[in-house]
């Protein structure tokens, strides 16, 4: 009984601490995306693979999306003609390299500021490396889903596509709903052709934009909140239910702790805005490197985002993406475990 009540206290405390950050992330990114033109931003992006990847990784600062919002934005960036390196850098880094996430990480790890710094540095490096690799490809299209390339081809052929029924790329699981009209109707297979439509966000009246913000925020909160609850429940069960000796044995191994945390990150799919609180509950028993592995790997690849990433890339590309990011995370965190104390 005692154990049950401490489990409930723990579970509730994770939620109460995380929900303000989730709210902030949802509202802030919704607002920025409804009021900032990403078109103009793309025009500024460098074409060079490395610089593009670095820039792409950094623009997360302007678009505080978590890993559910980054996929549709990355996809839209690609469609609007952003270099592959930029889109890839953004895809991988945006969930971590943004003010809300950094603040939340700082809140959780005030005592270990090195975790906050290393999280940012590692995420940025890995995203830039992978972005550069993909940016090196002369032609990115073999890696992309046919539905996407078809659209990109038609864009090349006819620079002025008919401004037909505007449908929406940005669906639930995005942090925003920046596209016009009857939102949330397109399925993944039917790609809209709005790349050359004058910036739709700016042409919307304020009241409509606010209403879209509301509608979108509610959707986001519902979905991310649901996952947050499941994630917190898992963290609680592991903390309270599994004997301490097992956790400590697993958590103190230099290699086993990293692998365990990466696996956990991939399964739990907790939103990057609040994942630091989840990681915090393991801070006393797991190595710092493994906490970092969780915080770096989770936002890039997890069950939830793989489904979303498959709407952009073919299976093979997603597999490479998974393999390279997993290896880089593992090696970097192992290095930290072995050399930094």
């Amino acid at each position: 009984m005692n154990q049950l009540s401490s489990a409930f206290t723990l579970f509730l405390s994770l939620l109460v601490e995380a929900i303000p950050f989730l709210l902030l992330g949802v509202l802030l990114s919704g607002m920025l995306l409804l009021f900032v033109s990403e078109r103009k931003l793309i025009a500024l992006m460098p074409k060079h693979p490395f610089l593009g990847a670095l820039m792409g990784s950094l623009i997360g600062f302007l678009f505080p999306v978590c890993e559910c919002g980054n996929v549709p934005v990355a996809r839209r960036l690609l469609m609007q003609g952003a270099p592959a390196s930029v889109a890839m850098g953004f895809l991988l880094a945006a969930p971590t390299i943004n003010p809300v996430v950094i603040w939340a990480t700082w809140t959780a790890f005030r005592d270990q500021p090195e975790i906050v710094v290393l999280r940012v540095v590692l995420s940025l490096s890995i995203a830039t490396i992978i972005g550069s690799i993909f940016g090196m490809q002369k032609d990115i299209r073999p890696f992309l889903q046919p539905s996407l390339t078809r659209y990109m081809f038609s864009d090349l052929d006819s620079p002025e596509p008919a401004a037909q029924s505007p449908s929406n790329l940005l669906q639930t699981g995005t942090f925003f709903l920046g596209q016009p009209g009857k939102s949330l109707q397109s399925s993944v297979a039917t790609l809209p052709a709005f790349a050359n439509i004058p910036d739709p966000i700016e042409s919307k009246p304020l009241v409509d934009r606010l209403q879209m913000l509301l509608e979108n925020s509610v959707k986001e909160l519902r979905e991310l909140g649901g996952i947050l609850i499941i994630g917190s429940a898992i963290a609680t069960v592991i903390q309270v239910g599994i004997p301490r000796e097992i956790i400590i044995n697993l958590g103190q191994g230099q290699i086993s702790s990293i692998l365990a945390m990466m696996l956990l990150a991939a399964i739990v799919s907790i939103c990057s805005t609040v994942d630091s609180f989840f990681a915090l509950s393991f801070a006393s028993t797991f190595t710092s490197g493994s906490l970092l592995a969780f915080l770096v790997f989770g936002p890039m690849i997890d069950l939830k985002s793989i489904g979303l990433i498959l709407t952009i890339f073919k299976k093979r590309a997603v597999f490479y993406l998974f393999l390279i990011s997993a290896q880089l995370t593992f090696l970097a965190c192992l290095f930290i475990n072995l050399n930094v104390r």
Partner: peptide
């Protein structure tokens, strides 16, 4: 109709359920 990890209505129900539990149970 698009990809979500858990069903939206399940997600809302879960949120509602936990909030009600929090309102009824006093954390110890």
């Amino acid at each position: 109709q698009h990809f979500t990890l858990i069903m939206p209505s399940l997600s809302s129900s879960l949120l509602l359920f936990v909030a009600i539990a929090g309102l009824l149970i006093t954390p110890r």
